[in-house]
C-alpha cells in the first residue's frame, strides 16, 4: 500500500458520508423546489413566493433583522474581543468561559430564559414600565425587538470569538509603536487594531448574518406566529401545511439570498483591507 492509498482509505468514510448524507440531500432539496405536480419541472413555487406580498414582507423582515443583529453583534463583539485579547491570562480564561458557556448551551434553553425575562410579567418588561419608558400592559414578547435581543445573545459569542482569534495574532508591539509615535489609545485602536482585525470582523459578520437569517427556533418562540421570518416560514411549510416543494423553494431562496448579500460584502471588505 502506498502513502497515497493509505490517506485515501482514511478519507473514504468521511467522503462517503459527505457525498451520500450531505450533498445528495441538498441536491434532493434543489430538485424538489422545481418539482411539478405531474413529475415535470416548474418554477411555480418560486413564482408563488415572489408574487405574494406576505412572503415578500417576510423576506424583507428577515434581511432587516439579520442586518440589525449583525451590526449589534459587531458593535458589542469587537470591544469584547479586544478586552479579552489584552486581558491578563487569568481574567482572560474567565472571559472566554463567559462567552463559551452560553455558546455551548442549547438554543432552546437560552430562548426559554428570554421568554421569562421579556414576558408581560417578566423582569425586563417590568423594569421598562417602572421607569416610565413603556406604557402599562407593555410586553416585549412577540415583537421584532424580542427577536433581536434573543438572537444577539445567541450569536454574540460567534462574533467575539471570530474577532478574538485575529486580534490574538496581532503583534502588540505594532500598537505600542503607534503609541510611541504619539497616537492616543483610541486613535491607535482605530488606526492599527481595527484595520488589522478586519479579517476576523468579516468572518464573524458573515457567520452571524448567515446564522441569523437561517434560524427559526429563537424567532419562532420570541416573535410568535405573527412576526414571521423566512426560516420560520420554511418550518411551517414543512410541518403545518405539508407543502414540501414550496418549503424547498423557500429554502432555496433563503440560501440564494444569503449568498447574494454575502458575496458583495466580502468584496467590499476585501477592498477596504487591501
Amino acid at each position: 500500500m502506498t502513502d497515497r492509498q493509505e490517506s485515501a482509505l482514511l478519507l473514504l468514510p468521511g467522503l462517503l458520508l459527505l457525498a451520500g448524507a450531505f450533498l445528495v440531500p441538498i441536491l434532493q432539496m434543489l430538485a424538489l423546489s422545481v418539482a411539478g405536480p405531474d413529475g415535470g419541472w416548474t418554477l411555480d413555487h418560486f413564482r408563488r413566493f415572489l408574487g405574494d406580498g406576505f412572503y415578500l414582507a417576510v423576506l424583507a423582515r428577515t434581511v432587516r433583522l439579520s442586518l440589525v443583529i449583525t451590526a449589534i453583534c459587531l458593535a458589542v463583539g469587537f470591544p469584547m474581543a479586544y478586552i479579552m485579547a489584552r486581558a491578563r491570562p487569568r481574567p482572560r480564561v474567565w472571559l472566554i468561559v463567559l462567552v463559551i458557556l452560553p455558546l455551548m448551551t442549547s438554543v432552546v434553553v437560552r430562548t426559554f430564559g428570554w421568554m421569562v425575562l421579556l414576558s408581560r410579567s417578566g423582569l425586563v418588561s417590568g423594569l421598562l414600565r417602572d421607569f416610565g419608558l413603556a406604557p402599562r400592559n407593555f410586553a416585549l414578547m412577540y415583537t421584532e425587538t424580542a427577536i433581536v435581543i434573543g438572537m444577539v445573545q445567541v450569536l454574540l459569542p460567534f462574533m467575539a470569538l471570530s474577532i478574538l482569534g485575529v486580534i490574538l495574532r496581532i503583534d502588540p508591539r505594532i500598537e505600542e509603536a503607534a503609541r510611541t509615535m504619539g497616537c492616543s489609545f483610541l486613535r491607535a485602536l482605530a488606526a492599527v487594531v481595527l484595520p488589522l482585525s478586519l479579517p476576523g470582523i468579516v468572518a464573524g459578520s458573515l457567520l452571524v448574518f448567515t446564522l441569523s437569517a437561517s434560524s427559526f427556533v429563537t424567532p419562532n418562540l420570541l416573535g410568535g406566529p405573527r412576526v414571521q421570518v423566512l426560516a420560520a416560514s420554511v418550518w411551517r411549510a414543512v410541518t403545518q401545511t405539508l407543502d414540501w416543494p414550496f418549503a424547498a423553494a423557500q429554502a432555496v431562496i433563503l440560501f440564494a439570498g444569503v449568498l447574494a448579500i454575502l458575496v458583495p460584502y466580502i468584496r467590499i471588505a476585501g477592498r477596504g483591507h487591501g
Binding site: P25, Q28, S215, A231, V234, A251, L254
Partner: peptide, 12 residues
C-alpha cells in the same frame, strides 16, 4: 445553514 441541510435530509 443547518435548516437547509435539515430540510434536504428530511426529504431524501
Amino acid at each position: 445553514p443547518t435548516i437547509i441541510y435539515a430540510i434536504g435530509m428530511l426529504m431524501l
